[in-house]
Amino acid sequence: MTTTLDAGRLTHLQRLEAEAIQIMREAVAESERPAMLYSIGKDSSCMLHLARKAFHPSTPPFPLVHVDTTWKFSDMYEFRDKTAAEHGLDLVVHQNPDCVARGINPFDHGSAMHTDMWKTDGLKQVIDEHRFDLCFGGARRDEEKSRAKERVFSVRSAQHQWDPKRQRPELWQLYNARRSNGETLRVFPISNWTELDVWQYIHLEQIPIVPLYFAASRPVVERDGTLIMVDDDRFQLNDGEVPEHRSVRFRTLGCYPLSGAIESEADTLTGIIQEMLLATTSERQGRIIDFDASGSMEKKKQEGYF
């Protein structure tokens, strides 16, 4: 980021960047087996860029962990592998073997079970298997009401439970990263960033992101008012359903059958930011798993999702 300072005063993005770097260094210094949960989305891209800054000229001293569902967009897999290779980072890809064996998918098993088994269970498995004691995540406090109170260093029990009553007070820049009895930590370096901050930072720092964020002609079908992209031949078309090409892009990325596209012509970063600023619905509305009830994210967190 720009190194010229306005009378010694930092801009809001400079302050956020410095805070995120401080959090990452603190987490790495106080853990034995750290890892970064890497979801391939824009927040992950932003977080990875911050990690590279935090440890420069060293390479970030932890692997990227992708809890895979096998149902991400093919563009995402390509981007993931390229990014890890480019920065010389270890990449740990975990697919819940139980889900692989049973062929869990969003079409036959529904979005809730699909997400719970692949992501929530998969995350627990990979943490246990590699004995990670601290995982970075890209969650932001502005995403959802229950996240506004999430700590930067969030304690999970040996059973991966989040207990709102056991979260530690965080004062000044002092984070307590100590763990007892199999506890692990989730650390959220971009807690205090908003969606606009992330986009603006990507813009200023020219951080690569998955091309799906940019508008292009893509094959989609419309279901319950949501545009779903037909990314491969596993897509189960209903009778009479024919994919049509429309100019669309994605505001959030996940499993392709669960990610709603929006019609857009925005194929530049500033175009995306412009659309985002003029939009009147919040980001998470594109994520189908949040639709259940407004307390649902909190429930998922207690169960160990993120």
Binding site: T11, L13, Q274
Partner: peptide, 21 residues
């Protein structure tokens, strides 16, 4: 600032960039 966002997003982003916190 929606007028600026709609008419000159680059100008808007530049002004936003130098905000303090």
């Amino acid at each position: 600032a929606s007028d600026l966002i709609a008419t000159d997003i680059d100008e808007y982003l530049t002004s936003h960039q130098y905000k303090s916190l």
